[in-house]
């Protein structure tokens, strides 16, 4: 099975980020970066599929030079080779542009399966994978929690989707296909010393992002969310305060 896994490099979770001078993006020049969490699970799932069925895992990351960090990490965890679509503008770009960057790199090779994370921790689109599927002409399914070992018995892939409120659903589709993977689908492995050494000898192909499509939207400004509500203190003896609070939650906040 030839599997492509798309990984994004994002600012480390909890990094004390600040908005930059242009107020249109964050100051990430001095930030620490890591692999987007669901993408790490997608990679792990890809590696497990390869262990089960044989084949090859190719990671693909689109972004500035700094994304080499996550590519190296992915290779150290066991990916066989990598494609780096080099573009300085991708961190702020919309999901359509990012998907096109990935599609441009994946189109020339025929993969049996393309895996992406469900969504990214930075812009949080949750749609790059789905757009990519459409651009590549692949069937897709999202928020995948399990990939059945033996398919559906008709040579199709069978996967479990998460629905809202504790519901799930199995569905099957022909390959090649694209799946967006939910965090927690598996347990991540550690990079090993051996893996890190081996990663140095693996191929990283860099490709330019020659023709980015026009943006479908622009970020006009970024700001810190303002809390418009003031805390309303409910006073009085416990019984009275409790009754008043319940009333407010019911009638004012409509949270009950």
């Amino acid at each position: 099975m030839k599997i492509a896994v798309c990984i994004k490099q994002v600012v480390t979770r909890d990094w004390p980020l600040r908005i930059d001078e242009s107020a249109g993006w964050v100051r990430d020049g001095d930030a620490s970066f890591e692999m987007n969490e669901p993408d790490a699970y997608a990679l792990e799932e890809g590696l497990r599929l390869k262990e089960r069925h044989g084949g090859e895992v190719v990671v693909c990351s689109a972004g500035p030079a700094r994304v080499a960090q996550v590519i190296r990490e992915a290779l150290a965890r066991g990916a066989d080779r990598a494609i780096h679509v080099v573009s300085e503008d991708l961190p702020t770009a919309d999901a359509g542009v990012v998907a096109e960057a990935l599609a441009a790199a994946l189109r020339d090779e025929s993969f049996d399966l393309v895996l992406t994370g469900l969504q990214s921790d930075d812009q949080g689109f949750g749609e790059t994978g789905v757009i990519l599927a459409d651009r590549l002409g692949l069937p897709h399914a999202t928020i995948i929690m399990e990939i059945a070992a033996d398919g559906d018995g008709e040579g199709r892939i069978r996967v479990k989707r998460e629905l809202e409120g504790g519901w799930f659903q199995w569905l099957s589709m022909p390959t090649p296909a694209l799946l967006t993977i939910q965090s927690g689908i598996n347990q991540l492995r550690y990079a090993t010393l051996r893996g890190i050494m081996a990663a140095k000898r693996k191929e990283v192909r860099t490709v330019p992002f020659a023709s980015p499509p026009p943006s479908a939207w622009n970020i006009v400004a970024l700001r810190v969310p303002v809390k418009d509500k003031q805390t309303r203190f409910v006073d009085g003896p416990p019984e009275a305060a409790a009754a008043e609070l319940v009333r407010l939650l019911r009638d004012e906040a409509r949270a009950l």
Partner: peptide, 23 residues
């Protein structure tokens, strides 16, 4: 202009649709 959370809710982005639409 649309408002959407970014960086896990740390910021709100003001986003303007571009291009012909439909948006």
């Amino acid at each position: 202009v649309l408002l959407r959370p970014m960086f896990q809710g740390k910021f709100v982005a003001e986003v303007a649709p571009a291009g012909p639409g439909p948006h």
